[in-house]
Design a protein around this nucleic acid. Sequence first.
DNA 1: GTGGTCTAGACCACC
DNA 2: GTGGTCTAGACCACC
Lengths: 111, 111, 111, 111
Amino acid sequence: MPISNFDPGDTPGYIYERMADHIATRINAGELAPHKPLPAERRLAEEYGVSLGTARRATELLRERGLVVTLRSKGTFVADVRGEKKCYPPTGESTGQPESDPWGGEPPLIA
Amino acid sequence: MPISNFDPGDTPGYIYERMADHIATRINAGELAPHKPLPAERRLAEEYGVSLGTARRATELLRERGLVVTLRSKGTFVADVRGEKKCYPPTGESTGQPESDPWGGEPPLIA
Amino acid sequence: MPISNFDPGDTPGYIYERMADHIATRINAGELAPHKPLPAERRLAEEYGVSLGTARRATELLRERGLVVTLRSKGTFVADVRGEKKCYPPTGESTGQPESDPWGGEPPLIA
Amino acid sequence: MPISNFDPGDTPGYIYERMADHIATRINAGELAPHKPLPAERRLAEEYGVSLGTARRATELLRERGLVVTLRSKGTFVADVRGEKKCYPPTGESTGQPESDPWGGEPPLIA
DNA sequence: GTGGTCTAGACCACC
DNA sequence: GTGGTCTAGACCACC
């Protein structure tokens, strides 16, 4: 099912920019919570009805804005922007659990 | 190989208009069939020995005449003008996914 | 729709080996003709109900057997094994441009 | 004619990186002199036997390295790196000549 | 099974 | 006639 409230063909601005804004809104609304993975780029492309390259530019923009963090071969995750007190572990060794969360050492907010 | 029967330098009127007329004739003759793509802008420009801008104005003219339909990044396609009774639904509900064929609901002419 | 006549869970040997054998049979039966592309990796994985990695090992095996040729970003194509007398020149001078058809110099079988 | 001494298929590293390095060498060798335009991206893609996207990533890399300057709709030009004393005109108005050189106010080095 | 690189093109904005 | 955006895919590296 495609995303509602998103019609890239009828509005000004670049499609990838509008798509990034739309995802940013979903993040800010809490639909996509911190530490949770975004849908995969292929899935995002399907949902938004755009090509893979356009979906990738959208996530690239979100990355530049600091809203998401991408881990190669793992996925793209919503950043934790609570009060800017975030501190990445300096030499974080795996805790042994399946590495699907780049902030593995923290208590989750929702799940 | 440039298009034969087309010498823009020797006749009155805008070149792009004569070029559009020439393509329209090819469409009406069936050389360019409904739903088939026109040559790309650059290729049209080469074939007719004109600049890109001129080729674009020619296809723009064909678009205004309803002879072709352009889909961004896909191409420009010969319109289906059988009987002129084609009527797009005024508030047509989208099927959700971008149509790769602007005449998707019709029985195919060729395939 | 998954491939019929293929139930990897019920037979001995590696799944990717059985999958490669199955595709090899389709090639030998002419269902997948020389110079024609195999389904893409993801599609093969879906059709056979296996993971991407398994599908890749299967095509890798076919590649080692000389049954297919892979061109990056282009696809994997059924090799032409007529008479086995095909012999690539050992220090073949490149024509300078990347071949879009690895059998470019031969008379086409289909087109 | 494709560029000699460039075989992207047989060496490590990304194609666009190797392509950028190759162009950088041509710049440093003086073959592509300061203020002169690079071949257009389409032409570069043909010369190097790569796709347009790859050629664009190569010029993007050269831009990041400060070796070239790109002007939209004008072209990509070899930067002038003589002694770092380069100073862009603050409110440069056109001098009236065809704007094919982003450093129009300077005496040319070669041409 | 993800993100990454790459192909081979298209039309678009701007000059 | 350039660079820019975009399509619709492919295989690759890595996990």
